[in-house]
Design a binder for these strands. Structure first.
Lengths: 246, 246
DNA sequence: CGACTGGTTGAGTATGGTCAACTTCGGTGG
DNA sequence: CCACCGAAGTTGACCATACTCAACCAGTCG
């Protein structure tokens, strides 16, 4: 048993899911962790790599440890859409009854995930109130977040969507809500597929935000927020003045 | 106690949440039903009516008994978006930590809802495995559904979105997946706000589907599906031939 | 019957998509 | 260390889809 605990420790030691108090594995007793660990498969995924289908078939619960995973749908004619983004701590439950496919997971940055067996996960949700609370509250957030995202896609202009995306990145990045510098994390074409735009439009849109002096582009993936209030306004749908106010 | 049971019966007798085996209240023991019932408020809501804010503040868990409820966001400049649709059996959990507002619920058809107290609901989810399973599986469906909807909004043309919407209505209406005649349930402008379009575009789009002989419009809100396979193809993103194949 | 809400039609326009050329970056190997 | 290559990103010109605005039509309710 000590041997086993040591073996577990190898897998889970230093894993954010365990070390961050807000995340799922931090809620577990040693015994529970050993049990879950023995039915879970931590994996590193390179950028652009799909999450192994075999892995998902076997263990369709995917917890994100690090990096960004996208839920990708590809239409029959090749249009690609990223329906949702999953970040550190998110739990993706790919079980879906019947009919429609849930889409495939792909890494949009180098990522580390941990796929959990359905049985162990369901058992945790059943028996451990803290783990259940974390799991359910994560689902609730996903639902609310998806609603916000639908608003973005349904009714916002390209610059507005990009402003919203910048805030999403800021909220999810380690530094949290205060930093001035935001890492966009995704490539232009992934941002495009997520925000319902084309890469060219993303490029032009970011330029436009820069022209309005709301942000400054720092290299390809870093953005400095210059006017957080105005950027937030824009993200929330206040139409920006097309030209610089004289 | 018998009195109480009778009083409950008045409220919950014939309620779909109770009589439909797949829905939440059908999972409850008599005792649990009495407890939940005494902390729940069934309400009828007229079309276009927002769900009473006071009701939501007090009991932010809303179960849909009948009709269609929309989760509405209104941007600062008046643009309206319907981020999600909730149908019979759906459970809306409006709790959201901090920051952003979850949006407001409005009835898009005459509807009947039941608002449940957080305490009773959480208790059920904790203690009754069947109720928990229903609640969690409903959340999971909402997440998957939201993902599909994001794909619609992100990458599909107006006719494709409308085809997808027709299937959503068919899937959720009582008859189920087989009927030829689908009730669109919503008004044009609500369809528009939900599918990220304008009412005029909805009108033109439906006309276009009719012109392609995929559907036939039966009055303002009924649609007869003429070519289910082709309509499904279109909804899934196969670009339709712009003109009738000669 | 008239007022009203919801829906349709039409003309003109703007936003973002498409396609193609070009630039920048990052890595690899000579 | 620099030259080269490919991937990613940007720019520009053109175009299409869906938006806007306005008028008009069709039911419905008092």
């Amino acid at each position: 048993m000590d041997n086993m605990a040591l073996a577990i420790a190898d897998k889970c030691r230093n894993c954010a899911l365990r070390t961050d108090d807000a995340l799922i594995c931090a809620q577990l007793s040693t015994g529970e962790l050993i049990e879950l660990s023995s039915h879970s498969t931590p994996t590193n995924v390179d950028r652009k790599q799909p999450v192994n289908a075999r892995l998902v078939d076997r263990n369709p619960i995917i917890a994100i440890v690090e990096g960004v995973i996208g839920l990708q749908h590809v239409l029959k004619d090749g249009r690609r859409s990223i329906a949702a983004l999953f970040w550190r701590g998110d739990i993706v439950d790919l079980r879906r009854d019947g009919e429609r496919a849930p889409g495939n997971l792909v890494a949009l940055t180098p990522a580390r995930i941990c796929s959990l067996s359905v049985e162990s996960y369901d058992k945790l949700v059943r028996d451990n109130p803290d783990a259940r609370a974390v799991a359910i509250s994560n689902m609730r957030e996903q639902i609310h977040f998806a609603a916000d995202h639908s608003v973005d896609l349904g009714k916002k202009s390209a610059p507005e969507r990009l402003a919203a995306f910048i805030f999403e990145c800021r909220r999810r990045q380690l530094g949290g809500d205060d930093c001035q510098i935001v890492d966009l994390a995704l490539r232009r074409s992934d941002i495009a597929d997520y925000m319902g735009l084309q890469p060219e439009t993303v490029s032009r849109g970011l330029k436009e935000l820069e022209r309005r002096e709301l942000i400054a582009l720092k290299g390809r993936s870093k953005v400095r927020i210059l006017d957080a209030a105005a950027l937030r306004q824009l993200a929330n749908g206040t139409p920006g003045k097309p030209a610089t106010p004289a």
